[in-house]
């Protein structure tokens, strides 16, 4: 089992624990904070390390994992359900295999841009919940580009594969309501989250697996309008 997979399992366990805690917190009816939002958009920016599934990646690109950044947007139908897309990017410089000699040689710059279409389930039971666990599933296709020294570039798209992610968000408005909300209670950004996420995606091309496992941290911003509440604070737990 790879180190990334071990980390992935740890994050899943952590997520399950927090989900349990959050559920308990929701049942206890913690102090009201914030307001539920109308359906709306969210955007995320994230970065971290990705360990490609490719065999011998470390041999040809120096390390078993590489830097990875991504951005996504989604439409939030419910506080606990949203659908959207994510685009990632990695680029690494290494060597290929010399065809005549069968040894490493020749410079190669490998770029990959996976495109994920996904739905996400979030364990949000009240608007002011401090920790929000979530997981998402979807489909993937990855655009690749290989710049080989003194040779034509190779570009193309992978076959359609699968995508999954799991993570936990920290609700920043609880920590610093003015700054995390952009100080714009009537403005566009309503909620800000910091999150830790594990991803796995699979995207094959002619027998080569281009996907891998990633650990990323990111920021999530939600947009929308606050729902006016009548009388006492109402629970916004999923129905």
């Amino acid at each position: 089992m790879s180190a990334v997979r071990r980390r992935l399992r740890s994050v899943v366990c952590l997520g399950a624990l927090v989900l349990a805690g959050a559920t308990a917190n929701a049942q206890m009816g913690g102090a009201p904070f914030g307001q539920p939002l109308t359906p709306g958009w969210t955007i995320e920016f994230k970065g971290g390390r990705l360990e490609p599934e490719l065999e011998s990646f470390a041999e040809f690109y120096g390390e078993k994992d590489t830097g990875y950044v991504a951005g996504s947007f989604a439409y939030r139908f419910k506080p606990w359900f949203e659908a959207g897309a994510e685009v990632g990017y990695l680029r690494d410089r290494g060597v290929g295999i010399l065809a005549e000699q069968g040894v490493p040689g020749g410079g190669v710059v490998y770029s990959l841009m996976p495109l994920h279409l996904q739905v996400t389930m979030r364990g949000q039971f009240k608007p002011d919940q401090l920790f929000v666990p979530y997981f998402g599933l979807g489909v993937t296709s990855a655009y690749y580009r290989q710049e080989v020294e003194l040779q034509e570039d190779r570009t193309g798209w992978s076959d359609t594969g699968s995508f999954g992610r799991v993570g936990i968000e920290l609700y920043l408005n609880r920590l610093d309501p003015g700054a995390a909300g952009g100080g714009l209670s009537d403005g566009v950004i309503k909620q800000s989250y910091l999150y830790l996420e594990a991803q796995r995606f699979s995207a094959e091309k002619e027998g080569n697996e281009l996907g891998g496992d990633a650990i990323v941290v990111g920021l999530r911003f939600t947009f929308g309008r606050a729902i006016e509440q009548r009388g006492a604070a109402r629970s916004s737990a999923p129905r």
Partner: peptide, 9 residues
């Protein structure tokens, strides 16, 4: 010699 990138796409 030609270079075969890894992965060979």
């Amino acid at each position: 010699s030609a270079t075969i990138p890894v992965p060979d796409l």
